[in-house]
Nucleic acid binder design. Structure first.
Length: 226
DNA sequence: TTCAATCAGTGCCACGGACC
DNA sequence: GGTCCGTGGCACTGATTGAA
């Protein structure tokens, strides 16, 4: 379990999470070199980013491993918008493996929208992170999909949530899905009062807002799935 | 200048539906 | 009928914008 001290800033996810991911990759390289992944699937964007250098690029460059950015929502950069035309293109994705390029106003293809599962109507947004072509990234991601989310990312997400629950002593999933009161109030709004009240999760784990650190969300990706 | 509303990106969770 | 998964919605952040 790691504690994220850097605040979340939209578009700067890499600065918040990459140091921890890099450390884990380095630990793996030293202690279990046989388990080193050949490719990293990152829950985030690569070149599909405001500055063309998202978290997948950061991690790929620092680890020198091939890296793919897999986003679940469209990052609206370089003229890319989740508008009616985009939704129409999504609608035309009929079966698993169908995709269309994400062409920015600058004329460059920033990534691909991929239908990863027959039952899924929402695409994944694949972008190049490091040392990999877009076509290979799309093929690899598609091959990793049992469901909509690539299995490495999905398993990492499930494992991290379970780890958090155990660490915080929270009940398992779907056992205490109480109404909003149970939702952790990370940081009360400006003048909403300091009365945090009960029903709050333990505070010592989280130095800042959005503290529920998600250890191993991305880093697990490469470890478990090769 | 201050405050409220809005925006975009992200994480979390309840709900509905598919599958066994 | 129970379990599992995807989707949509809500809450959070900082930035931006417009009104008072």
């Amino acid at each position: 379990m790691v504690s994220l001290t850097a605040p979340y800033v939209s578009g700067f996810l890499a600065f918040r999470e990459v140091p921890f991911l890099l450390e884990l990759v380095q630990q793996l390289r030293e202690k279990e070199p046989g388990l080193m992944p050949q490719v990293l699937l990152v829950d985030g964007n690569g070149v599909l980013h405001h500055r063309g250098f998202g978290v997948a690029c950061h991690l790929g460059v620092l680890t020198d491993l091939p890296c793919v950015g897999v986003a679940k929502k469209l990052l609206q950069v370089d003229g890319l918008e989740n508008n009616a035309l985009h939704k129409e293109k999504i609608r035309l994705l009929q079966t698993r493996g169908d995709s269309f390029p994400l062409l920015g106003d600058s004329g460059t293809v920033l990534g691909m929208a991929l239908r990863s599962h027959d039952r899924s109507t929402r695409p994944l947004y694949i972008s190049v992170g490091h040392r990999m072509s877009l076509e290979a990234a799309v093929r690899l991601t598609c091959c990793c999909c049992r469901f909509r989310i690539p299995e490495p990312v999905r398993q990492a997400d499930i494992s991290s949530r379970e780890h958090i629950r155990k660490s915080l002593g929270l009940p398992g999933p779907r056992t205490l899905r109480s109404p909003k009161a149970q939702r952790p109030v990370a940081c009360p709004k400006r003048d909403s009062g300091e009365s945090s009240g009960e029903g709050q999760p333990p505070q010592d784990h989280s130095p800042g807002p959005r503290t529920a650190s998600r250890p191993g969300s991305q880093e697990q990706a490469g470890k478990d799935w090769q």
